[in-house]
Amino acid sequence: MLLSIKNLHASINGKEILKGVNLEVNNGEIHAIMGPNGTGKSTLASVIAGRDVFETTSGEILYKGKNLQKLSIEERACEGIFLGFQYPVEIPGVSMTNFMRTAVNEIRKYKGLDALSGSEFIKLMEEKKKLVEITSNLTNRSVNEGFSGGEKKKNEIFQMAMLEPMLAILDETDSGLDIDALRIVANGVNKLRRPDNAFVVITHYQRLLDYIVPDFVHVLYEGKIVKSGGKELALELEDRGYDWIKKELGE
C-alpha cells in the first residue's frame, strides 16, 4: 500500500479541521476527493505534505509503510509526495529554471543520484514541456510571477512531470481552467500515470473526472470521509448535490 491514513485529526490555531480521516491508496490508483467548500479537502492535502501551520493531534499517516510525522516537508517531497497547489504562490526573483534545477537535483541527491548537468537538465525540461503541452518560455520567468491562472496550473503539472512523484495530490487543479486548459492538465496526468504511482485528485466538479477517470471517489464532509464509492458516485453528486448525503448523515 502506498498511503494509509488512519483516524487523522488535525487543527489550525486550536480549531479542529480534520476529525478522523481514514483513507487508503494503492499504487496505480486514482482517487478523487470531493465535497463542499470548507470541509477540509485542502487541509488534508497540506497535512500530507507536512505543512507546519497544521497540527496533527491524533491518528497517523503511513506512506510506503513509514510514518510521515517525523519527516520534514522536503523529505516528504524527496520521498515522492507532490502537492499540486490550488493557489501556486508567486516567487519574484527566483527563475523557474533555477527553481526546478535546484529541486530536481536535491531530489536526485536524496536518492543518491548524481546531479544533472546543465545540458541534461535543459533536455529534460524540453521533453517534459512537450509532454504537458507547455509552449511558453519558462526559462527567464520568475516562479509563477505574472502567470495567468491557467498557466499557473499547467506549471504545476509541468513540475509534477519534472519531479516524477509516487504520490501526486492535486488540490483543485481544475478550478479556474477553461476547457482547453482542463484537457491539457488531464492529459498530463494520464500520461504520467504508471502502475507504481498514484494520484489523489481534489475537485469540486465532476467535469475533471470526465478526463481523469478515478478508481475511487470519496466525499469529505465536516472533516471526515463520509462516503466512498466508484466513479459513479461522482456522477451522482453532480446530479443530486451534497444535500442527500447530509440527509443520510441525519442532518
Binding site: 516537508i73 517531497a77 504562490v89 516567487i91 526573483g93 527566483v94 535546484t102 536535491e106 516562479v143 519531479l163
Partner: peptide, 22 residues
C-alpha cells in the same frame, strides 16, 4: 513561498537562501 519550495524537495536551508537571493 518557503512551503512551496520545500514541497518541491528543496531543503529549508537552500530555500531560505534562494528566497533571500530573490
Amino acid at each position: 513561498a518557503m512551503f512551496y519550495l520545500r514541497q518541491r524537495g528543496i531543503s529549508e536551508e537552500s530555500a531560505r537562501m534562494l528566497l533571500m537571493f530573490a
